[in-house]
C-alpha cells in the first residue's frame, strides 16, 4: 500500500515541477525547478528498478545540464556587447 502512496506522490511531484519549470516567470527560478525535476526523475528511475539510469540522470540530467543552463542564464542576464552597440536589445 505504502508503495502506491510513494509512487503517487512522486508522480504528482514530477508533473508539478515540470509545469512549474515551464510556466514560472523568472528564468533563474525555472532552471532551479528544472534541476529539482531532474532529481525527482532520478528517484523515479530507482522506483523503476533502473539504477544505471538513476545515476546517469542524477549526474548528467540534473547535474551537468543544470550547470550549463545556470551558466547560460547568468550570461544571458547581462546585456550582450552587441546589444550595447545597437543601444537597444538585452532583457
Amino acid at each position: 500500500m505504502t508503495e502506491w502512496l510513494l509512487d503517487g506522490l512522486l508522480v504528482v511531484a514530477l508533473l508539478v515541477t515540470a509545469a512549474a519549470a515551464l510556466l514560472s516567470r523568472d528564468l533563474f527560478r525555472a532552471v532551479v525547478v528544472f534541476i529539482a525535476f531532474g532529481l525527482l526523475m532520478a528517484v523515479a528511475w530507482v522506483r523503476l528498478q533502473a539504477p544505471d539510469i538513476a545515476l546517469a540522470e542524477a549526474a548528467i540530467g540534473a547535474g551537468l545540464t543544470g550547470v550549463l543552463l545556470l551558466d547560460a542564464v547568468s550570461h544571458l542576464g547581462s546585456v550582450s556587447p552587441r546589444a550595447q552597440e545597437k543601444g537597444g536589445g538585452g532583457q
Binding site: P51, D52, L55, A56, A59, I60, G63, L64, V67
Partner: peptide, 17 residues
C-alpha cells in the same frame, strides 16, 4: 554492478567544474 563509463564520466566532469 550498475555503473559505467557515462556515470563515471559525468562525475569526473562535475569534479572538473
Amino acid at each position: 554492478r550498475p555503473g559505467g563509463a557515462f556515470q563515471a564520466g559525468a562525475v569526473l566532469a562535475a569534479t572538473g567544474v
